[in-house]
Each structure stands twice: as structure tokens, then as C-alpha cells.
């Protein structure tokens, strides 16, 4: 057997023996790691879900370009070409006057009586425009809104400017909050785990001193601790996964 492999096996055996001989400290370490990972897991669960919700919400940000009733076919084509050429746009849909009214009627199904007296279609045709990721912010949307509102045949644009600003502010504070909570959590977990490690080192400081006295190198002293840590860490994860599967 090559000396390196022999030494590795010895280190592994010693680490295993240490865990066996220090059952209580090892169990505490494994349990601490499990709890730490569980807390981290819960945080990540909340974090990723929240991120998904935010992405979903930001996908819904839209710019509505209302067209004049008397827009010509050529004008319509021009606006459409503008949309097509704009690389910031993710997807878009055209809503003709008729379709707009149909959609409106559908929406007011229960109160259709309101629309009964309507003899002409008051709703304008429109383009609903959605943005690519990275352009779903107030500044970009406002810029595009200005561009479209200046186009010929466009009656008005609507992008809920105030709402977007509030949405962005909310996301900004939410992100700061999550980062702060995550940071504190990480700090807490690091402290707990490092204290557990310190406890296990301290409980064996006599042994470490003796090893030093008989001329053990740093690596010879540290390696079993390292392997022990890896074993305990993996045991902690397995325990955590077990709990996760059960629940």
C-alpha cells in the first residue's frame, strides 16, 4: 500500500475512533450541524420562493399603448414595426377595438346591464407590451413610454408609473431585509458551528498537548479533526435529509 494511502486510512480510523470515544460531543456536533442546516434550508426556501414571486410580479409589468380610433393601416404597421425593432421588449399583443370590448364585457359578466345602453365602442385599440428581464424597471419603461407616446397614431400610453415606483421601493427594502436576515443567520450559524468545533478541540486539549510533546507535526494533529469534521458534517446533512423526508 502506498504510504499516503496508508496514512489516510490511519487518519480516517483515528477520526472514527475519536467519534466513538467522544460520543456525546460528536452527537452534539452532529445535532448542531443538522439544526444549522435546517435553519439555512428554511431560509433558502423562503428566499427562493420570494424571488419567484417577485419575478412573477415583475413579468406582469406592462406598457399599454392606446391607439387613436382613426389610425390608418400604415400607422398601425409603423407602431407594430417600432415594437418589433425594440430589443428590450419580451412579448407583446395587439388588442383591437372589438376584442377590447369583448374582453371588457367578459370582465363585467355579472354586471353586463351597465353596457347594455352602449351603442358605439368607446374602447381604443391597444398594444400590451411586456419587457425582457433587466428592463423591467421604472426608468426603462418610462423611456419607452415616451418614445411610443410621440409616435403617430398613438392616443396615450399607460404604464402605472406610480405603482412601479412603489413596487420597486418595496422590492428594494425587501432585498435589504432578506440580505440582513440572511447575513445575521449566516453569522449566527458560523458562530454556532465554530463554537461546537472549539468545544470539541477544547475537550481534547490534553491529547493535543501530548501529541505536540512527542513531536507530532501540525498536520498529524489536525488531520483527524478535519476528517472528523467532514464525517460529522455529512452525518448532520444525512440527519437533516432524514427529517426532511419524514416530514
Amino acid at each position: 500500500m502506498p504510504p499516503f494511502l496508508k496514512q489516510s486510512l490511519k487518519t480516517f480510523a483515528e477520526a472514527a475512533a475519536n467519534i466513538r470515544d467522544n460520543k456525546e460531543t460528536s452527537l452534539i456536533a452532529i445535532f448542531t450541524i443538522s439544526v444549522a442546516i435546517t435553519i439555512l434550508g428554511l431560509f433558502l426556501l423562503v428566499y427562493f420562493n420570494l424571488n419567484n414571486v417577485l419575478r412573477g410580479l415583475s413579468e406582469k409589468l406592462q406598457l399599454v399603448v392606446y391607439l387613436k380610433d382613426d389610425i390608418q393601416e400604415s400607422g398601425l404597421k409603423k407602431v407594430e414595426a417600432m415594437i418589433r425593432d425594440e430589443e428590450k421588449i419580451w412579448k407583446w399583443e395587439y388588442l383591437s377595438k372589438d376584442n377590447a370590448l369583448r374582453a371588457f364585457r367578459e370582465k363585467l359578466k355579472d354586471k353586463s346591464a351597465i353596457l347594455e345602453g352602449l351603442d358605439a365602442n368607446p374602447l381604443p385599440a391597444s398594444f400590451n407590451i411586456y419587457f425582457k428581464e433587466g428592463y423591467r424597471n421604472y426608468e426603462e419603461i418610462k423611456l419607452l413610454a415616451g418614445k411610443f407616446s410621440a409616435a403617430q397614431g398613438v392616443e396615450d400610453v399607460d404604464y402605472g408609473g406610480g405603482w412601479i415606483l412603489r413596487f420597486e421601493a418595496a422590492i428594494f427594502f425587501l432585498k435589504i431585509f432578506i440580505t440582513a436576515v440572511g447575513g445575521l443567520l449566516a453569522l449566527g450559524l458560523i458562530t454556532i458551528i465554530s463554537n461546537t468545533v472549539r468545544l470539541s478541540v477544547y475537550s481534547r486539549h490534553d491529547e493535543i498537548e501530548i501529541k505536540k510533546l512527542v513531536g507530532a507535526t501540525r498536520w498529524f494533529i489536525q488531520a483527524p479533526f478535519l476528517v472528523e469534521g467532514i464525517i460529522q458534517g455529512m452525518a448532520g446533512v444525512v440527519f437533516y435529509l432524514g427529517v426532511l423526508i419524514i416530514f
Partner: peptide, 9 residues
């Protein structure tokens, strides 16, 4: 520092 173990031997 790294040679201390060899002294102790």
C-alpha cells in the same frame, strides 16, 4: 515553527 516537532523527537 515547522521544525519544532523534529526537535521534540
Amino acid at each position: 515553527e515547522s521544525k519544532i516537532p523534529y526537535l521534540r523527537r
